Simulated assay, not measured.
Amino acid sequence: MRGVKGYLILFAAVGALGVYGVSKLARGIRNNNPLNIERTSDQWLGMAVDQSGDARFVVFDHEIYGIRAAAKILKSYASRGVNTIEKIISTWAPSHENHTESYISTVSRRTGIPANQVVTESDYPAILAAMIYVENGFNPYSEELIREGVRLA
């Protein structure tokens, strides 16, 4: 799997942050779930057998599966007309739990896509990269790894 490069980037990011144990990394990075997908009855491809590491969010075996799951969710949103950054983020991160307006603004700014512009699947890698940044405070993954996760969705 080409996703192995993601591990190298993750280790480089950890090195740049200082010498931290895995427990100091953002929750989404620790769980290989960089978009913080909540647990439901869904059985995602690549879910770790042991889900005891987090009571709220899915734990994946590899970050590519977390990215793939997020891309599948975006495709599901699009089928229901949730197809702009504003609509995607408002659904993904509702205001009763998040600073949704700030999240929308950051994703729009980082992608260069206006918040109300209809997006297509070709925009997903950039959108997911920006969402990973918001969810974790940084994005340690390569564009190639994110594109591969979207391709697998």
Results as ranks from 00 to 15, higher is better:
residue 28 G to C: 11
residue 29 I to D: 05
residue 31 N to S: 15
residue 31 N to L: 15
residue 32 N to G: 10
residue 33 N to Y: 05
residue 36 N to S: 13
residue 36 N to G: 11
residue 37 I to V: 12
residue 37 I to W: 03
residue 38 E to M: 12
residue 40 T to V: 12
residue 40 T to R: 15
residue 42 D to E: 13
residue 42 D to V: 15
residue 44 W to P: 07
residue 45 L to Q: 09
residue 46 G to P: 04
residue 49 V to N: 14
residue 49 V to H: 11
residue 50 D to I: 14
residue 51 Q to T: 06
residue 51 Q to W: 08
residue 52 S to T: 14
residue 52 S to M: 01
residue 52 S to V: 12
residue 52 S to Q: 02
residue 53 G to T: 05
residue 54 D to C: 04
residue 54 D to V: 07
residue 54 D to S: 07
residue 55 A to N: 13
residue 56 R to C: 00
residue 56 R to L: 09
residue 58 V to C: 13
residue 59 V to F: 00
residue 59 V to K: 14
residue 59 V to D: 04
residue 59 V to N: 09
residue 60 F to H: 05
residue 60 F to V: 03
residue 60 F to E: 00
residue 60 F to Y: 09
residue 62 H to S: 06
residue 62 H to K: 06
residue 64 I to W: 04
residue 64 I to C: 02
residue 66 G to H: 05
residue 66 G to C: 03
residue 66 G to T: 07
residue 67 I to A: 02
residue 67 I to M: 01
residue 68 R to I: 01
residue 69 A to D: 01
residue 69 A to V: 11
residue 70 A to M: 06
residue 72 K to N: 03
residue 73 I to H: 13
residue 73 I to G: 08
residue 74 L to R: 03
residue 74 L to S: 01
residue 74 L to I: 03
residue 76 S to Q: 08
residue 77 Y to V: 04
residue 78 A to Y: 06
residue 80 R to L: 13
residue 81 G to I: 05
residue 81 G to M: 06
residue 82 V to A: 01
residue 82 V to H: 03
residue 83 N to K: 08
residue 84 T to A: 09
residue 84 T to H: 10
residue 85 I to L: 10
residue 86 E to Y: 06
residue 86 E to A: 15
residue 86 E to P: 03
residue 88 I to W: 01
residue 88 I to P: 00
residue 90 S to Y: 04
residue 90 S to M: 02
residue 90 S to V: 01
residue 91 T to W: 05
residue 91 T to C: 02
residue 92 W to V: 02
residue 92 W to K: 07
residue 93 A to E: 00
residue 93 A to R: 04
residue 94 P to W: 02
residue 94 P to M: 03
residue 96 H to A: 10
residue 96 H to E: 12
residue 96 H to W: 07
residue 97 E to N: 13
residue 97 E to Q: 15
residue 97 E to G: 08
residue 98 N to V: 02
residue 98 N to Y: 09
residue 99 H to E: 11
residue 101 E to G: 10
residue 101 E to I: 14
residue 101 E to L: 15
residue 103 Y to L: 14
residue 103 Y to E: 04
residue 106 T to V: 15
residue 107 V to N: 07
residue 107 V to S: 07
residue 107 V to E: 02
residue 108 S to E: 07
residue 109 R to P: 00
residue 110 R to K: 13
residue 111 T to E: 11
residue 111 T to F: 12
residue 111 T to P: 10
residue 112 G to F: 04
residue 115 A to C: 01
residue 117 Q to L: 09
residue 117 Q to S: 11
residue 118 V to S: 06
residue 119 V to G: 01
residue 119 V to I: 14
residue 119 V to C: 07
residue 121 E to I: 11
residue 122 S to P: 00
residue 123 D to M: 02
residue 124 Y to W: 06
residue 124 Y to T: 01
